[in-house]
């Protein structure tokens, strides 16, 4: 069965696929941490482009928007926490590079063997006229449980992230037994318990 993708779409998917892998490799090759972040963004935008060519318009747009914002935040974290954010001097910060490369290449080889040895099913499939509508109806219908669990997980993430990132919690203010009469605030006047 000939592919449902047009010749242009196949060419675009091929170029974007190569671009995504090349950008992914560049993440761990370039010296500058800011450049590494933008290389990762390039990789994700290429993946979003492939999704777009595969008719998954909504997921492609969500991926592109989410990753652009995420990488913009990540650049800030890179500048805060990395000792060489601008890459002004060449440096590598790796441990067990050889073992990691063997494991990464091994995972790739195992996956590729499976991909090329499996006899993939070829059948005449009926495409939905609108993939976004199909996803929306699944979220609000047959796959609602997935969305319920996702919602709970995201809410738990908000709480846990806030708790972890808070500089001074109630134990810092009222002691380990929470029994201090006055909160130990750097500037007095904080709210009592």
């Amino acid at each position: 069965m000939l592919s449902d993708l047009s010749g242009w779409a196949i060419a675009a998917v091929t170029v974007l696929g190569v671009l995504s892998v090349a950008s992914g490799i560049a993440v761990f090759v370039v010296d500058s941490m800011a450049r590494a972040t933008f290389a990762l963004l390039g990789s994700f935008l290429a993946v979003a482009g492939v999704l777009l060519a595969l008719d998954l318009v909504y997921l492609a747009v969500v991926t592109a928007l989410m990753m652009t914002i995420e990488m913009a935040i990540m650049v800030v974290f890179m500048l805060m926490f990395m000792m060489n954010p601008a890459g002004l001097m060449p440096m590598t910060m790796v441990h067990n590079a050889r073992g990691s490369a063997v494991l990464g290449a091994g995972a790739f080889v195992v996956l590729v063997l499976g991909i090329w040895l499996i006899d993939w099913p070829t059948r005449d499939v009926s495409r939905p006229p609108d993939s976004t509508r199909q996803l929306g109806e699944a979220i609000m219908g047959s796959h609602m449980l997935v969305m319920l669990l996702i919602g709970i997980a995201l809410f738990a993430t908000i709480l846990a992230g806030t708790v972890l990132a808070t500089a001074r919690g109630r134990y810092d203010r009222f002691g380990s037994g929470l029994d201090a009469q006055q909160p130990a605030d750097p500037v007095p006047g904080g709210l009592p318990r």
Partner: peptide, 26 residues
């Protein structure tokens, strides 16, 4: 198969990075 191979390459590169990098952000 070509697209899945690209996906496998991304997984392999990412696995290498996650195992080898010292910085938490990397």
């Amino acid at each position: 198969q070509l697209l899945l191979t690209v996906a496998a390459a991304l997984v392999g590169v990412g696995l290498y990075g996650a195992l080898s990098q010292q910085s938490i952000v990397m």
